[in-house]
Nucleic acid binder design. Sequence first.
DNA 1: CATGAATGAGTATTCATTCAT
DNA 2: TATGAATGAATACTCATTCAT
Lengths: 200, 200, 200, 200
Amino acid sequence: MPKSSERCQEIREEARSKILHDSTLYFAKNGFAGTKISDLAKHIGIGQGTLYVYFKSKEELFNEIYTLTNNSEDIKNLKILVHLPISAKKKIYKLSKSIMTNLMQDETYAAKVALNTQMMFEKKGFASEETTYQSELYQVTEKMIIQGQKEGSVVNGMPMKLADYFWGVVYLYALKKLFTTKYELISEEDLARILLKDEA
Amino acid sequence: MPKSSERCQEIREEARSKILHDSTLYFAKNGFAGTKISDLAKHIGIGQGTLYVYFKSKEELFNEIYTLTNNSEDIKNLKILVHLPISAKKKIYKLSKSIMTNLMQDETYAAKVALNTQMMFEKKGFASEETTYQSELYQVTEKMIIQGQKEGSVVNGMPMKLADYFWGVVYLYALKKLFTTKYELISEEDLARILLKDEA
Amino acid sequence: MPKSSERCQEIREEARSKILHDSTLYFAKNGFAGTKISDLAKHIGIGQGTLYVYFKSKEELFNEIYTLTNNSEDIKNLKILVHLPISAKKKIYKLSKSIMTNLMQDETYAAKVALNTQMMFEKKGFASEETTYQSELYQVTEKMIIQGQKEGSVVNGMPMKLADYFWGVVYLYALKKLFTTKYELISEEDLARILLKDEA
Amino acid sequence: MPKSSERCQEIREEARSKILHDSTLYFAKNGFAGTKISDLAKHIGIGQGTLYVYFKSKEELFNEIYTLTNNSEDIKNLKILVHLPISAKKKIYKLSKSIMTNLMQDETYAAKVALNTQMMFEKKGFASEETTYQSELYQVTEKMIIQGQKEGSVVNGMPMKLADYFWGVVYLYALKKLFTTKYELISEEDLARILLKDEA
DNA sequence: CATGAATGAGTATTCATTCAT
DNA sequence: TATGAATGAATACTCATTCAT
């Protein structure tokens, strides 16, 4: 009697994913307070009520989006990257290439970066403990930097501060991707050069 | 009556200033949509109604704040700076010093920088006309960069793109000033070095 | 097709009955406004949509339930009771016994009593016409009381007021049956004694 | 600068009281689920928003009403009554008189009785512990009954069951007061006679 | 027929703004 | 002028009903 049960579950999962995906961009562009459920639903192309079938509240939807930005493939790939038996310089080039490629091709990636960074600025302590995106991404980057400084390819300075700066710039260009069309993004080489010494 | 009339005006002006000053910080931290009049009034330490004695609406208050960030002393000083008969390198050092000093000492300055940059990202076209902070500041900075490139002290690249990047980093640390306490800001030298070639 | 047609009708009737039966209890406990279709369906053990296969709307379902409480066997039996050639005292004992037995054994009976009485309190005039449960039951009871007063077995007082009081008490214990487990119901003798004079 | 501070508090208290008072009747007549905030506000004669100045939610308002029905003067008076050095018969007459007088004159009193009794029937355990209205009122009444049975003026039976029945009848007439106009209430003598033996 | 996902009209709640004091 | 209580338009959320499968 049920509607085919498996297919049902499938449909639900698809709808849920679509909502999460489309909301990410919308929240990143408009902020939490600036996002009206009615507009969001229209933007996604569903009824207002449908949102509440899948999420208890605007806040739950937002939190889930935030959580997702941390569990994404990107992070996992980065974790793998840091453990590869290659030079820090190569790692940083790969990292920069990966970031800029994603940023160029995928607005949602930009949205995730923007949301994540903004979250680190929020008071309400979503990311209050050091167990979040910040630590994850920043620590992985810090390790690359430390390796690079040993290898002599990375500029001097406190590794964490450099990582912080590096990701700050990524945030900057994520915002540009989201909000402007005027300026082209910087090249992956320019991004990498933030950490790497100029080649003599 | 006539005697106290001036004093009255004075008091009005003071109250108005206080509201503008305190609101700047609050808007920068919470955004326009995220700012409730009730919270804002509490934060300033006045009644909700009082806000409406001085400003017609939330939007008017916000616009006024935005306008003020453009007419501030800082900008004027920068305009003067660009016309001084000194090397671009010195100008850039002075600019960086001025920015970082303000950023360190004055949260409201950070708030102004943040608001201004955010405004450039907004759709609503507050800054759509090229007569705004962006153009002003960016053009002044662009001129310095062009001068510096001629003098050989500034790195290569499109001047406007460099200016854009320079102010992007300033924005980044303005946000850090507003939202975190953890990381120290970068030094004025580090900021200047974004534009300047490393000294051999 | 023609062969299964009957069976089909039969199944339909069964399903319909189950919905009516289970809903009666649910409405009685939660009221019309307090009953959500989603909860009701879950309680019955069917899908929400299924309800609408059998009933046009929540209101139609409710009305049907209300109507059914009037056409039930109980009423018919009571109408027969009043015309039996026995003493009012015996009739009242039989009535009381019938009521209390039903009340004890059948929660749905309690639900019917509760719903009916509540309906008399509603403004919306379901029971506005005097062609309803109230009049039916009350008039039958009134007749018994009048007969009993003639026979000297029933206490003095306005017959309709006594009937009203009698059924009020039944309503009271219907509620207890529906909502509590603590107190035992009164005995059928106690119920009968509301109308009957104490035996000297 | 504040509006006169005391007067302000006063106004708030008055408004709050008015809302509580007027809502009691409305909730008693329509039930919690059947009460719309928009209608309730209209009925009270205030804006919808005003309700939320004084109460966080519909539920909080309802709970407060319920709490108030327990702390009312009536209960306190009854507690005093039970300790007076008079016969149980007199106490029961006084009790009945007090109840019926209130019921006749004050619809809000009827509303309180109705709400309280209904609450005892609710699942959600507002009154789950025996520390509520039920216990309070019922225990006081039980004591009178026990005293009366010793004195020989009160009918036989489990005292708590009798108290339960007595208040059930009060509930019944509270409902009549709230919802009908047809039948006059029973007299205070009739109410007292529920507990008292017929005088020989 | 039976289902439960989707929907929007309806309801609860918030918040910028007004206004009497 | 300064206030905060009052307000309703705007916004979040719910729920009876529909409909594709």
